[in-house]
């Protein structure tokens, strides 16, 4: 990487950082009724999600990042 491109990347990162500091949460609490609906939950019934993940983990080589905050899949 050339010195010029390093400077450009650093400048871009700084710009994003400065802009990010000025960004405010754009969805207000009173606008989140749709998000609070149970149909908007990625894993609505944990006992069922865990089981079906288990079925796939047992029969596929891929593992991890199945979803669910905090728990992870804990496979293999």
């Amino acid at each position: 990487m050339t010195r010029c491109s390093i400077k450009a990347t650093t400048g871009l990162c700084l710009l994003i950082l400065i802009n990010a500091c000025s960004i405010q949460p754009w969805v207000k609490p009173y606008e989140r009724q749709h998000l609070a609906d149970p149909i908007m939950t990625f894993q609505r019934d944990p006992i069922s999600s865990a089981y079906i993940n288990h079925v796939y983990q047992a029969r596929e080589a891929a593992r991890g990042a199945e979803g669910g905050q905090g728990g992870g899949c804990g496979c293999n």
């Binding site: 998000l35 149970p38 990625f42 944990p46 047992a58 199945e66 905050q69 992870g72 496979c75």
Partner: peptide, 30 residues
């Protein structure tokens, strides 16, 4: 392969939460 999931319970025990604000999972039995 079944044992690949010996850590799986963490996902149902640690739980999933609604995407709005930090709250504990609901009291429930399944």
């Amino acid at each position: 392969p079944i044992l690949k999931s010996t850590l799986i319970a963490s996902s149902i025990l640690v739980g999933t939460w609604p995407v709005i604000a930090a709250i504990l999972p609901e009291d429930r039995a399944d």
